[in-house]
Nucleic acid binder design. Structure first.
Lengths: 246, 246
DNA sequence: CTTCAATTGTCATCCGATTGTCATTTCTTA
DNA sequence: TAAGAAATGACAATCGGATGACAATTGAAG
């Protein structure tokens, strides 16, 4: 409510385009206030946002904008949300659809997912949760041809050439360090136990001591963190493991 | 003691592990040729595959691998497929079971489903059809979206990143606190004795004089309850234990 | 043989889980 | 209703384990 006070009204435009976009999110929702909230929320996460107030517009934007994900309110003027959902899925683009619905509408969650929805969030929902689910859905669907480039803080990583830079200065990383770092970039914000890291990064046949993980983390910190003693990206979660944040 | 993220990785020979797995499919089938076909089929769809040639092995792998779905041949050496199916369902994990059977075996389809099977495919079957049915079953069963999120009152919890928020404000929880909280969210409205909590969350039997549980509850209340003195979610059940309500 | 990376080993530090104590609440029984 | 007993809340202090840091050793590649 207090959120939209300083929002600029760009009524003519239905898109919000940040400088470097992670793709377009199509929001199909008829409540103007929700539109604003969602637009902001995703724009701040570097997504381009396309908003449709009704089903017909939604369908058009779906074709023209090629969104990476769709957020769909079930209650809509015009075409019903249910029909839309199935239509999107029949277009077989693989684009994930996240449904917004009041709890009362969801008589059967299973039914909802059978429509082809990839996920759903019940109202009232937390923007943060919605964001997390959308990003999870996108990641789930994303094809192997991933970007080989990654940036966080003042670090740039190019996995293809196995090079990294901090503040533009080249840093030499070893094979293991790269593999570990890559795994972290693929699991941002997620707490990863040492056991998991050993399995995923080192492989099944390796049974190194858990000290190994610590040391590799240490190395990465020394090479990438401005202040290795106070890491800002490769965080220790005491009693659990490590977490990579941007 | 460390948090038990119990991943068994030793059965490399039974498993086919793609780079990014959508989860494990447990195949219980004694025909080696079918094993190969199924393994390939699901591996190419980015599932991890665990194969068991008999019922006993199947049961073990079910416990250790935590599959997202089970494909079960009814005709098996050792434990019968029917018994296995019921066993899986009694383990109450909700894991979908898809049964393979020759037409002649299926006297009554209803009977089959009464065993707890979620779906069935009659031989000879098309791998494509089987794949479709398995994926449908998985999607149907999928928890409120990987249940990494939980919301109650004005608290949001994200288990995968081990973070929580009250009224949108981040709250730092320790590993133990998280484990305890998670257990509560998995047992809403149920009275949990200290003894049970110690067994399930701590993992050992402790002496009745231990005030450890109380203190952890206290911490959780202080961090999550708006008014820790008058808890609305983490309730004390005098003389019994604690109960978590929404 | 040389070199660099990966693993293991060791010790110091730090975090938080546990314990102990005492106040407060709740239940029981007179 | 009142009083005593039991259970729980609250807080502080301690203790143990987890992690950071670095050195030593092993292993692999050229």
């Amino acid at each position: 409510m207090a959120m939209d006070t300083d929002l600029m009204e760009d009524e003519a435009e239905f898109k919000t385009v940040p400088s470097a976009s992670l793709g377009t999110i199509l929001v199909i929702e008829d409540d103007p206030r929700m539109q604003k909230v969602l637009r902001r929320s995703f724009a701040s996460e570097h997504y381009t946002v396309a908003v449709a107030g009704d089903g017909q517009t939604g369908l058009e934007l779906f074709r023209t904008e090629r969104p990476v994900a769709v957020i769909l309110d079930l209650i809509l003027p015009g075409i019903s949300g249910r029909d839309l959902c199935q239509t999107f899925k029949n277009l077989s683009s693989g684009t994930p659809v996240i449904v917004l619905s009041a709890i009362s509408e969801v008589v059967d969650k299973v039914l909802l997912l059978e429509l082809g929805a990839d996920d759903y969030v019940t109202k009232p929902y937390s923007p943060r949760e919605l964001m997390a689910r959308v990003q999870a859905a996108i990641r789930r669907q994303r094809k192997p041809a991933d970007s080989t480039f990654f940036r966080f803080g003042n670090c740039e990583i190019d996995f293809k050439s196995m090079t990294a830079r901090t503040d533009g200065i080249p840093v030499v990383l070893t094979a293991h360090e790269f593999k570990l770092l890559k795994f972290f970039t693929e699991n941002v914000d997620r707490v990863l136990t040492r056991e998991l890291l050993l399995n995923e990064v080192w492989g099944y046949n390796a049974y190194p001591t858990t000290r190994t993980v610590d040391n590799q983390i240490l190395k990465l910190r020394q090479k990438l963190e401005p202040d290795p003693a106070n890491p800002k990206h490769l965080l220790t979660i005491y009693g659990a493991g490590y977490k990579f944040v941007l």
